[in-house]
Write a protein that binds this DNA or RNA. Structure first.
Lengths: 109, 109
DNA sequence: AATCTTTATTGCAATATTGCAATATTAAAT
DNA sequence: ATTTAATATTGCAATATTGCAATAAAGATT
């Protein structure tokens, strides 16, 4: 025991959880913010931006990619990563939905 | 080593990461959705809604509470949990901000 | 071809998370 | 005061995550 019982929950619940989980680490938040900040999506220097070793950054990038938050293009021997807006839109819509539903209620706590 | 190097990142980055992390488990997504669904924020029956044991649900509730996503009132011997809209608003604003910044750029990947 | 640059992978240690049975706590009901 | 009901805490096992050194892979440069 001890593993997440993901199979007991809906696909949508698991999808939102997976995206949120990927954002749930400050290094990955920092990576996303860096990708938003730079105009071009030149990427190798993410390592220089962060106080983490290259393999660690590479792993965080993989997790963001698995969650659909970023996408990458191979350009020569470098890789150009950038944010995949679709995942951001999914989250936006999800929280907008929650927010709208909450407005229709009288908060009781 | 292996612990998160949270001290290397900004307070805001850590805050967003902490909220996202709390949402990053399907059981906690399911709890949030249940709290949105029920009109009143009667809470004991969250345990009946989920395929998890009572201590497990209690722990998930504590994590949601620590992240500021829910708040709870003691009502007799029961506890009334409900969503804290402030945390939802924070996330909404954060992703709106990212989304707006992305619109001003030509996506290159 | 040999080297450099960039990124990914592997293997490992440290730590964190998940889930639950057992137990504790707290307040209501009898 | 005892019992019941609701929730929290503790302690533990199973699993996952985090971070990095070492190494690999793959294209560019010389």
């Amino acid at each position: 025991m001890g593993a997440s019982k993901t199979e007991y929950f809906s696909a949508k619940q698991n999808e939102i959880a997976a995206i949120a989980k990927a954002i749930g680490h400050p290094a990955r938040v920092a990576i996303l913010e860096y990708l938003v900040k730079v105009d071009a999506c030149i990427c190798g220097d993410i390592v220089n931006e962060l106080p983490l070793a290259q393999p660690t950054v590479s792993q965080h990038l993989r997790e963001l990619k698995n969650a659909g938050l970023i996408k990458g293009n191979i350009e020569g021997n470098a890789i150009c990563y950038c944010i995949d807006e679709k995942a951001i839109e999914k989250l936006k819509k999800y929280f907008d939905g929650i927010s709208n539903k909450l407005l229709k209620k009288n908060s009781c706590c």
